[in-house]
Amino acid sequence: MSDINSYRRKFLGGLAGTAAVATVAPGVFLREVQAKPAGEAVSEKVRWGMLIDINKLDDGGDACIEACKKEHGWGNDPKSNDAQQAQWIRKVKVTEKMTGHEVTLPVMCQHCETAPCVDVCPTGASMKRADGIVQVNKHICIGCRYCMMACPYKARSFVHETIVDQRPDTPRGKGTVESCNMCVNRVDEGKNPACVDAAPQAMLFGDLNDDDSPISQALKKFGGTQIRADLGLNTGVRYWGI
């Protein structure tokens, strides 16, 4: 049996098992943690994570990218050139040199447990919430871009111009750094990140600290690949199919 067939069998079986414990109706996943009441501190008992099955992403992640743009309002800064545009999530095509095997996957902030961007930030603006979400505090980001130098995933973007018509839940500021924040605004309301809702057949969001959560169970059963696992960053985003 080829690796791919073996993988497919494992994945379908895993997803069926996961779905059995987690769905109440087709396509609707139960969330294992309720919305956080406003004013309540973020708890370290939770570690939010994401599992992406890239073989189930028919479009390679285009829908996720569009959903992210819509949610956070990035990607069309009129004065910035292509290399200066922000990119919270992108579609990366990977071709193995020897075999020519090709895969396409969405890459965004991997929400590392020991995030290099958090370590290097002089002000603490680049921070990890107690629940594992890595994001930038725009109020104290001085725009030094050291976090961009440090991030192994090129997940961070610098805002090169004054931004107008911002999304109310996603303030973007000229001269500060930004990146995927796992839709922290939605998560705190008890919703999924926008990308997960855009590709529910391929993405699972949940609490990695909860052994009974669907994502933990799926990862326990079948594992999950980290990008640049060699760096030992223990990412919160894991992949199937790489």
Binding site: R90, V92, K93, V94, T95, M98, Y153, K154, I227
Partner: peptide, 15 residues
């Protein structure tokens, strides 16, 4: 940046 050793990568974000 090397995201995947032993592989070639490309994207709309200059990977």
């Amino acid at each position: 940046l090397i995201l995947f050793p032993n592989a070639e990568v490309s994207s709309a974000f200059f990977d």
